[in-house]
Design a protein around this nucleic acid. Structure first.
Length: 530
RNA sequence: GGGCCGCUAGCUCAAUCUGGCAGAGCAACGGGCUUUUAACCCGGAGGUUCAGGGUUCGAUUCCCUGGCGGCCCA
C-alpha cells in the first residue's frame, strides 16, 4: 500500500486526473492527499523518516490526568513526560499553538510555545496535519483556563496520515462509510468507541464468570460435515483434498455436548457461527454465540446462570442493571419472572392451547386471532407462531419464557411433567430473544427419533432442518450425563447493554455488499474462463 | 423478496417541492494573532451533484433503469 501511494505521488501532484478514469478514483481526496504526500517527500529529503520504528512513552493520557489533574490552574511543573497519540485538533495562535492529542486512553492537550521550542520545532509542529501520529516530550503544566497540558519541548512524527479526518464537530455520520471504513468511525465517533469498549468488556466478563464457576473454555470445529444444533440454513463449502462437501457451523451445541460425554463436566465456547439468511437490523451473516453446558444441571440452573451473566455484564460495563434502549428504560436486575409459554399465550390471546390439540383446531385459533400460518405446520409450529406473533413483541422487561412444544425443539429433553413439551426457555428482553436454553436431551433413542423427524422435514424442503448426525447419536450412546445447556447471542447482549438498536453497531466489520467501484475484478485476469 | 426514504466539495449539510451561473460551516491553502478548547479575524480556492439513459432551449432538480445505503414489512 505504501509503495503504491509513493508511486502515485507524482501523478497525483502532477495533474490530479491521470488516474481519474479508474474505478476507485471517486474515493480519492486527491488534492489533500497529494499535499500530504508532498510533505512526506519533503521530510524524507530533509532526512526525517515519516514512519519511524518505535517510540518510548512514559505516560498515557489517562495516566497523566490521573496523576496531575489536581494541580493548580496556570501552574507549571518540572515533571518530564513522553506521550504519543494522534493529533486530532490544532489551535494556532501565531507564536503559540495548542494541540489535542489522543491515545487509546483519552486526550491530552499540547502547549507549543515558539519562545520555548524555537522557530524550527514550532514551525514543524504547525506543519503537522490533523490525523498524524506523533510522539512528544515535554513537561506537565496546566493552562490558565485549567486544561492539563504537555508543555512541548520536542516531538517526532510517528506516522504521517495522508487522508484528512472527518469533520471535527459532526464527525462521520454516513452509515455506509462508518461500517465500511470502521477505522475512520473509531477515530471520529466517541459512541463507536464506547459501544466496542462495552463489547470487549462483555466478552471478558463472561469468560471470567464462567471460569470462576469451573467452566473450561474450548474450541470446536467451524467446518462441519453436518449442520445441526439450530434451525438455520448453512453456508456450504468444499474441502478439495478430502473431496468432501462441508458446511460452516450454525451452532456450537453438538460438539460441546460430545465433550460432556467425554467427561468434561462444564464447558463453554464463545465462537462465530454463520447463517445463510437475509440481513436485517438484528441479523448479521456471522455472529458470536456463547454456549455453555453444565453436567448434572437442568434448565432452571441455566436460568440462574443467565441472570448472573447478564446482570454482571451490565454492572461491569455500565455500572448498573438499568439500560435504556430506544427510549425505553429496562431493569435487568434478577430474578426474572419464569413463565410457561402456554400461560403467556393465554394471557395475551384468551386462548388456552396445547400441543396435543388437533392441528385443525389450532389452525382455527390462529385464524380467529388473525395470525398467518402455513399448510403442513404441526401443532408445535402453530403454537410457536402464536407466541412469536402475539407475546414476544410485547415483552419488554426480562422474562424466561419456559416449556416449548416438543416438535420445535429437537435437542431438548421432554418435560418432566408434560410429554408434549420440552424443558426449554428463551430469555426475552425488549421483544427479542436474548438466550435459549434446555435441559439437554440425553436419551440416544429419543434423540435419533427427533433427528429422523427433522430429516423428514428437510427431505420435504425445509432448508432450516437437518438430517441425522450419526456420530452425535453414537456419542449419546456412550452416555451424556444429565445437563443444562445455554446459548446467548453475544451481539444481542451487547446491543442491550450498549442501548443500540442495530446489530451492525456492535460488529466491527458488519457484512455489506461489495463496495461500488471495486467491481469487475476478473477483468484484469483475462476472461478466458467461463 | 416488497414498500418508503436517501446519495451534492475530504467531512457535515443547503439549493430540488415550483427546472434557469451549485452554496455554507469544518478541513485544506495564504495572511494576522503567546492561554486556546468546535479558538478567533481577513482572503483566495476547492464539484463527474452515485452511474447510465430520457424529456427540455436548459436537469442537482422532472421521468426511466441500475448501484449502494437506511427504515419498515415478509
Amino acid at each position: 500500500m505504501s509503495d503504491g501511494a509513493g508511486d502515485g505521488a507524482g501523478d497525483g501532484a502532477g495533474d490530479g486526473t491521470g488516474d481519474g478514469a479508474g474505478g476507485g478514483a471517486a474515493f480519492e481526496p486527491r488534492d489533500e492527499r497529494a499535499r500530504r504526500i508532498a510533505k512526506v517527500d519533503a521530510l524524507r529529503a530533509a532526512g526525517t523518516d515519516p514512519y519511524p520504528v518505535r517510540f518510548d512513552r512514559t505516560h498515557t493520557a489517562a495516566e497523566m490526568h490521573e496523576q496531575w489533574d489536581g494541580i493548580e490552574d496556570g501552574s507549571e511543573t518540572t515533571h518530564e513526560v513522553r506521550v504519543a497519540g494522534r493529533l486530532l485538533l490544532k489551535r494556532s495562535q501565531g507564536k503559540l499553538t495548542f494541540g489535542t492529542l489522543r491515545d487509546g486512553t483519552g486526550t491530552i492537550q499540547l502547549f507549543v510555545s515558539r519562545a520555548e521550542v524555537g522557530d524550527s520545532v514550532h514551525g514543524a509542529f504547525d506543519d503537522l496535519d490533523l490525523g498524524d501520529w506523533i510522539g512528544v516530550s515535554g513537561t506537565v503544566m496546566k493552562t490558565r483556563k485549567g486544561e492539563l497540558s504537555v508543555k512541548l519541548r520536542d516531538f517526532v512524527l510517528l506516522a504521517k496520515a495522508l487522508r484528512p479526518l472527518p469533520e471535527k464537530w459532526h464527525g462521520l455520520t454516513d452509515v455506509d462509510t462508518r461500517f465500511r471504513q470502521r477505522y475512520v468511525d473509531l477515530i471520529a465517533n466517541d459512541d463507536a468507541r464506547r459501544v466496542f469498549a462495552i463489547r470487549f468488556d462483555v466478552v471478558a466478563t463472561i469468560r471470567r464468570l464462567l471460569v470462576e464457576q469451573g467452566f473450561v473454555e474450548v474450541e470446536t470445529p467451524v467446518l462441519h460435515e453436518q449442520a445441526g444444533g439450530a434451525a438455520a440454513k448453512p453456508f456450504e463449502t468444499y474441502h478439495n483434498a478430502l473431496d468432501t462437501p462441508l458446511v460452516l457451523r450454525i451452532a456450537l451445541e453438538l460438539h460441546l455436548k460430545r465433550l460432556l460425554v467425554g467427561g468434561m463436566e462444564r464447558v463453554f465456547e464463545i465462537g462465530r457461527v454463520f447463517r445463510n439468511e437475509g440481513l436485517s437490523t438484528r441479523h448479521n451473516t456471522e455472529f458470536t454465540m456463547l454456549e455453555a453446558y453444565q453436567a448434572f444441571a437442568d434448565y432452571t440452573d441455566m436460568m440462574t446462570l443467565t441472570e448472573t451473566l447478564v446482570t454482571e455484564c451490565a454492572r461491569v460495563c455500565i455500572g448498573g442493571t438499568t439500560v435504556e434502549v430506544d427510549g425505553t428504560t429496562i431493569d435487568l436486575s434478577a430474578p426474572w419472572p419464569r413463565r410457561p409459554m402456554l400461560d403467556l399465550i393465554e394471557e395475551h390471546s384468551g386462548q388456552r392451547v396445547h400441543p396435543t390439540m388437533p392441528v385443525e383446531e389450532l389452525e382455527r385459533v390462529l385464524d380467529g386471532l388473525d395470525v398467518d400460518h402455513k399448510p403442513g405446520w404441526d401443532s408445535g409450529q402453530l403454537i410457536l407462531e402464536l407466541y412469536e406473533k402475539l407475546v414476544e413483541p410485547k415483552i419488554t422487561a426480562p422474562v424466561f419464557v419456559c416449556d416449548y412444544p416438543r416438535s420445535v425443539s429437537p435437542l431438548a429433553r421432554v418435560h418432566r411433567e408434560d410429554p408434549a413439551l420440552v424443558e426449554r426457555f428463551e430469555a426475552v428482553v425488549f421483544g427479542r430473544e436474548l438466550a435459549n436454553a434446555f435441559s439437554e436431551l440425553n436419551d440416544p433413542i429419543d434423540q435419533l427419533g427427533r433427528f429422523e423427524d427433522q430429516a423428514k422435514l428437510a427431505a420435504a424442503g425445509d432448508e432450516e432442518a437437518h438430517g441425522v448426525d450419526a456420530d452425535y447419536v453414537r456419542a449419546l450412546e456412550y452416555g451424556l450425563p444429565p445437563c443444562g445447556g445455554l446459548g446467548i447471542g453475544i451481539d444481542r447482549l451487547v446491543m442491550l447493554i450498549a442501548g443500540v438498536t442495530t446489530i451492525r453497531e456492535v460488529i466491527l466489520f458488519p457484512h455489506l455488499r461489495p463496495e461500488a467501484g471495486h467491481d469487475e475484478p476478473t477483468e484484469v485476469e483475462g476472461g478466458d474462463n467461463s
